[in-house]
Amino acid sequence: MEGISYQRFPKVKIREMKDDYLKFELRETDASMANALRRVMLAEVPTLAIDLVEIEVNSTVLNDEFIAHRLGLIPLTSDRAMSMRFSRDCDACDGDGQCEFCSVEFTLNVRCTSDHTLDVTSTDLRSSDPTICCPVDVAARATAALDPNSAYDPSEQRGIIIVKLRRGQELRLRAIARKGIGKDHAKWSPAATVTFMYEPDIHINEDLMETLTLEEKRSWVESSPTKVFDIDPNTQQVVVVDPEAYTYDDEVIKKAEAMGKPGLVDINAKEDSFIFTVESTGAIKASQLVINAIEILRQKLDAVRLSLDTEECDEQFGELGAHLRGSAV
């Protein structure tokens, strides 16, 4: 066993990247790594979210807790969140979360004076420092205004509705956004969706396939709920058009069995290659989300790294000790 390294060098290939969407391949690693990454992205990448609400006036139909809960769920831009402090370990303030290192203050002051129903939206939230933190739709509008080429149409965006007001109703409050992680409350989760799938490995048994008539081929191809296979119009052979569309539903395999041709196709999941899809809430860019996640994963691993002065315990830990101290030795 000595000398054999099981170290692997995962590779990442980005397929598609937008601000709030990222699709990439992760290869040459195993499911534990992929899953760890997914879990961290969902639950441990920090963002900012409204955590404390002081209501001054609330004559709306919704009660205070209700509004506070809704405010909490508004995604806020949190590009700085990684460098900010959790308010519980902030030295600069006594924990009420009103310092620049750990919190951002918002105010909201709306009153309906017309006969029309007035929507109170995220755009009505005034940030004490919009450069650090503001609702994501407000930020999107601001960036779109700077970029004339963007496809963003402000008239389509109404903001995130908090509550609706009728004539005479008023909502006045002060809210403080703090840093947090999704594990504590889902409002701090920067990810709308993080998912990965094993890359499928599809082998069609061509010999067996040739025994099928065109009609049978067609019905077999159509048995898949997603468009994985198709028939080549020229050669009339069944070809795999999009292996990743396969959802491991086994429909084609069952169909083949029902047709009396088991083994017509062989589909396996590649154990070491994953296709990740990450969608962000807008709090941070999807690409940044992945990078932050890797960073946090590293920090977590660092936490279990043994200090260099534990060599005397090597008897106890053996090879593991050296490994945990880092392989720099």
């Binding site: 997914r38 879990r39 969902l42 639950a43 999704g182 594990k183 889902a186 989760s189 969706t193 993080v194 998912t195 799938m197 959802t247 491991y248 899809t277 969608e279």
Partner: peptide
């Protein structure tokens, strides 16, 4: 149970 411990579909649901 935490969301990350929950099963998810290939579309992330």
């Amino acid at each position: 149970v935490q969301q990350e411990d929950f099963p998810f579909s290939e579309r992330g649901i």
